[in-house]
Each structure stands twice: as C-alpha cells, then as structure tokens.
Write a protein that binds this DNA or RNA. Structure first.
Lengths: 347, 347
DNA sequence: GTGAAAGCGCTAACAT
DNA sequence: ATGTTAGCGCTTTCAC
C-alpha cells in the first residue's frame, strides 16, 4: 500500500528523521536536502500515516465538531470554519449529540480530538461543564458560556435594531416570537443556545422600553426555533383580542412559519402584519423577508482562528487571541417586503 | 491524562492483551475476567487511544464523508448515516472538496479512512476514479457510478409520476426546470450528480411521450439546483410565446425560486401555473409545494449499512450486501396546493 | 544539518 | 482462557 517513511528515506538517501523534519517544514534542514526529500515523497505518493504521527507526537490534529445535524445555521458556520481548519491541516470529526440516549458522553472525545468547535451549542450547560472537566479546549459559536472562548453576534443589539425598525415605521403593538420560553437562567439543563433566545428577547424589550411602549406579555409567543413552531406562535398572536400590527420573529426559520400562518389566515403581509426575522437565512430572500442578518460563515472562520490560536498551531500569530475571548460581531438589517407602516399608521 | 491500557491491566490483575480482548468484546475471555476488566476500565475512565489501536490494527475505523457543505440534501442523508455509523463505533471525518483549488486530492484520504460516504456526489467522474484507484471503498447516495455501490431513488420513475400527475390534471403544455443542461454523458468533468438531473429529465420526457404529448425544447430550462437558478428558469419559461400551464421542477430548492418568480410576476399559483417539485425538502410544506418526496435519511441509513458490510464490520450480517449493489428506493408524491387543473382545463 | 534509537499505546500472533 | 512479545510508522531526544 502506501509507502512508508523508510522508503522515502531510502530513496532520498537520508534518515527517517530527516524525512520527517523536511516534510513538516521544520528548521535545520538544508534546502537541497529538503528538495530531495520532497521529490522522493512525491514520487512515491507518500502520505504520512496520521495514526503513527499522532501516536508519536501526542497531538491528534483533529477538531471535533459537536453539532446537531438538524440545524441549518450550523452548516453555514461549519463552512466558514472548515476552510480555515483544512488550510491548517486539521481534520474535522463530526459529533452529533442529538438523537442518542444519555447525556452526551464527552469521554470518547478525549484522545480523539485536540479541541472542539461547538456551533449553535446543542449541549446543556452541564454537558459543557463535562467538556471543561476533561480539559478539552473548545470554542463556541452563537452563544457564550463562561469558561469558553466564543464567537457570536450582538443578539441584544440586533433585536433592538429590528424592533426599532418596526417602531420607526409607526408600529406600537409589536409582538415577539422567541425561540425558547423565558427562563431564569439558572437551569443547567437548558441548552447553551438559550442565551441567544434570551438576548433577543431582551433586545425586543429594551427597544420597546426605549420608545416608551409598555411590554404586553400577551404579545409574546414561543416558537422553538422551528418553522412549525413559528407558524403556531404566529397563529396565537393574531388571535388575541387586540393583535399586534407587527411581529419580531427571533429566527428566520420561525419567520417562514409565521408567514405561512399569515398566508393561510388570509392576512396580508406586510399590510395587515409586518414581520421581521433574525438570522440571515439564505432563503429569507425567497420570502422577501425583512431580517437581521448575521455573518454566519464569518463567525465560523473566526472561531476556527481562535481554535488555531488555542492549539498554538499558528506560531507566527502576531495578534495573540486570548483563550477566554468573546468575539461579538455586529449584525445588519436587510429590509425587504415583509415590513411596512401599519395600516392605521399615524407616524 | 487518560490512563493507559497497562494501568487497567494492573488494576484488573491481568495482561494488556486480556484487557484489549475483554474491552472489545472478543471471545475467549472468561465472563468473570471481562467484568473485572470492565470495572477497572470504568474506574479509571479508560478510553483506548484510537491512534494506537489504529496503528496496531491497520484499520482506521473512520468513514470519510465527502460532501459539499452547501447542500441541504446532504445533511439529511448524513443524519441517517450518522446514527448507524456511530452505533457501529465508527468516526466520521468531514471532507469538503468544494471551494478548494485543484481537483480534489484523494491521497490524504488513504491511511485516514477505511471507506468513504459520498452523498449527492459533488465529485466529477474523474475524481471518483481517483478514489477507486486508491482502493478506497465507498458508497454513493443520490447517484450511481459504475464500480461503486450506491443508494438512490428512482429518479426516472419519480419524475414520470410527477409529470403524470400534471397530465392527469389536464395539462398539455408542461415545462421542465432541470438541474443541469442535458449532456451526452461522456463528459468526465461533470459531477456524478448529473445522473439524477438526467434521469429526472428522462422521466419527464417519458411521461410526455406516454401521453402522446410532443416534447417542446422551448419548454425546458436549466436551474442549476439553486433557488436563484430556479427563479431565473421559471422567468424564462413563462416569457416564451406560448408558455406552459404547468412546470415540473426537478428539485425543491429550485421550485422555491420558481414560485418566487411567479409571485413577483403576479402570476397565481396554481391557477395560472401549476408547479410540482422533487426532493422532499423539509421546507416544501412551508410553500404548500406539491412535490415528489424521497426518503433522504433512509438513503443515508442504508448507505451506512452498505458501508458496514463493506468493512465486514457486521460479522453476523444475515443478508450479505453485495459490494456492487445499487439500491433504488421508491418515491412518493405529496400533493399540496401548487398544482391544479389548468385554467382552460378541458380534461 | 543529520542520524541512531527509544518510545508513543495499542493489537495480533504465538505460546502456554 | 490468558500471558508474552514483536511490531504498527511515525516523532523526538540526544549524539555527532
């Protein structure tokens, strides 16, 4: 099968140690030697056995990606991260904690990966702790958990912007469809993603407060981050005595469901109901959905760079990233056709 | 860090060989011994070093997933496969051939994976050949390439069913939006996915022929499997002199774009134009899209099982799957609200 | 700048 | 049923 390092060494007329050094770009190898070794390797189509180097070096050069394969967001983040990590020669191992029974066993990860990337954290806080306990470094995307470096967007600010946009249009009765029910944050069993949900709700409330509009709990519904949930939630909202004229939906996926509910109820969008989403889903445009766009791939890219700095895999990193860093990216609002002034707009 | 096999052996009072045998469930180990070893391992939170076992055994117990991270289909397939493979204790390594320059280097795969899973083949036929040349077994999902076992749906039959449905409704001028332009199949540079595109077009033409309807090349457009492409293609179709009254869109993603085009052109669906998709996209329902549903996760599951049989990882496989097997699954049609009788329907 | 040799932590014969 | 031992193919001191 694949030639071994010894064959390369023989062909190049050097020792295996030199081959190893030459091929990995280590210093203290004469350029002429390096060239010779490279040629020999190419000629034999030599690829170092990763198992052997891992065993010998103690590094797996592998990143575990812990993600619920359901999501769409995670894919975008992964794309951004993948490019960077592959560039650095790291392997990506997939972990789906989802469907299994039991509370996610972090044990097999040890010895298997050097670090983990956790997009849209599908884990509970307790599970995150178990990762920490095993001393597996990792970076989160889309949520912040104390003790982990993370990359996310300004959820509070983004939500505020969204709601502010509705307010600027003249809306006063503004509904909210959030991902999860409001918790007190003390529940270790809630998913780390809850922070995004909570933050967006906070932004919503802040914007209302800033405009002097009182919060109406009857205008808040929960959609569970799925389009079906969003549909149900919207149906609830327009069925109340005094329905909102606009709704901020904390996730594009849910917003799609919300639009469906409105369409089926023969309510016109945006004339009868304005809808603004959050997320930057690539299909938002298909729906003409006004939404708050977050740079998903960029978050993945930055997370990957953080990961590399964590592994010291970037020796020439001019700017050293702190392991406990929390990178917060800004969002932008993309105005399409699901928002307009309220029918009885007074502005 | 993590204890080694020697520590476990010492604690259990046996040799390392016995620990290895006991923990891997090999025969010729006394049940009492096995229990003792298991307890020792649990106590030490022992996990075997995969690198070491791989190096020693020559098996990586890893499956490479070669997929373009763009897709949505691939995720569904992966979900089905993941469960099976994880159950079997196999690792999943991610490979994204997409963005990189160069023609996908299969070399690093060797020594790194035991086999590959290739959902919605993003590779050209040439690249598939290079996989073959390296003797890496693999199974394809969503397309068949000679020399590889594969799992796919009956694309021809599904397309025929879809078009037949339109015909039954009374349509005579039926358009097609296909993924790729018709090729002669001899181009090694086309992606393996082309077969799906070609098959669906074939089903479309067969259905027309069977109904005695002549094919009109002017009623066929290409959408490139993206919603934007589908939108463009639909815009083309309803702009011709004598537009179709219904369109078969060979992919749900494109169908979404097609619906958008119609909406923007103020054409009513289904009254002015019936649309039927293909794929079973989880968001088809959001659009009320009538479509041909393929069992994505099930394809992944079956592919994974094929993979296991390829690796002889299922010693007690009662039904031995042939390595050159091509599993073809049936599809079902899901009728929603984007299809109806033509306006001037004569039936 | 290069080579020799000792592991890395397992598995797989081969003994017993 | 269990133990002994020789690798698996690299990396990494430590000499030179």
């Amino acid at each position: 099968m694949g030639g071994s390092i010894e064959e390369v060494a023989a062909l190049a007329g050097v020792s295996t140690a030199t081959v190893s050094r030459a091929l990995r770009g280590l210093p203290y190898v004469a350029e002429s030697t390096r060239r010779r070794v490279r040629e020999a390797a190419a000629q034999l189509e030599y690829v170092a056995s990763p198992q052997a180097s891992r065993l010998a070096s103690g590094h797996t050069r592998t990143i575990g990606v812990i993600a619920d394969l359901t999501g769409w967001v995670f894919l975008q983040v992964l794309r951004g991260a993948e490019a960077v990590l592959r560039e650095a020669g790291l392997d990506l191992l997939l972990y789906n904690p989802g469907d299994d029974s039991g509370p996610f066993d972090a044990l097999p990860l040890r010895k298997r990966v050097d670090a983990v990337l956790v997009p849209c954290p599908p884990l509970t806080l307790m599970e995150m702790r178990s990762l920490q306990a095993l001393n597996i470094p990792g970076v989160l995307v889309g949520a912040s958990v104390p003790g982990f470096p993370s990359v996310r967007v300004d959820d509070v600010g983004g939500a505020r912007t969204a709601v502010q946009h509705l307010i600027n249009l003249g809306h006063r009765r503004i509904g909210l469809i959030s991902g999860e029910a409001a918790g007190d944050g003390s529940d270790n069993r809630e998913t780390a993603l809850s922070t995004a949900s909570a933050d967006r709700r906070r932004g919503y409330r802040e914007a209302l407060a800033a405009a002097g509009i009182e919060c109406d709990p009857g205008l808040e519904a929960v959609g569970g981050f799925t389009w079906r949930g969003g549909e149900r939630a919207m149906a609830e909202l327009f069925s109340v005595e005094s329905p909102p004229t606009a709704v901020f939906v904390a996730d594009d996926e849910m917003a799609m469901g919300a639009l469906r509910a409105l369409r089926r109820a023969r309510l016109r969008v945006p004339e009868d109901m304005s809808v603004i989403g959050f997320g930057g889903h690539d299909k938002a445009e298909v729906f003409e959905l006004t939404t708050v766009v977050q740079p998903l791939a960029r978050q993945g890219k930055i997370a990957a760079e953080l990961l590399l700095s964590l592994l010291d895999a970037v020796p020439d990193a001019s700017q050293n990233l702190d392991a406990s860093e929390v990178v917060v990216l800004p969002v932008s609002i993309e105005i399409r056709d699901t928002t307009c002034r309220p029918a009885s707009g007074t502005t």
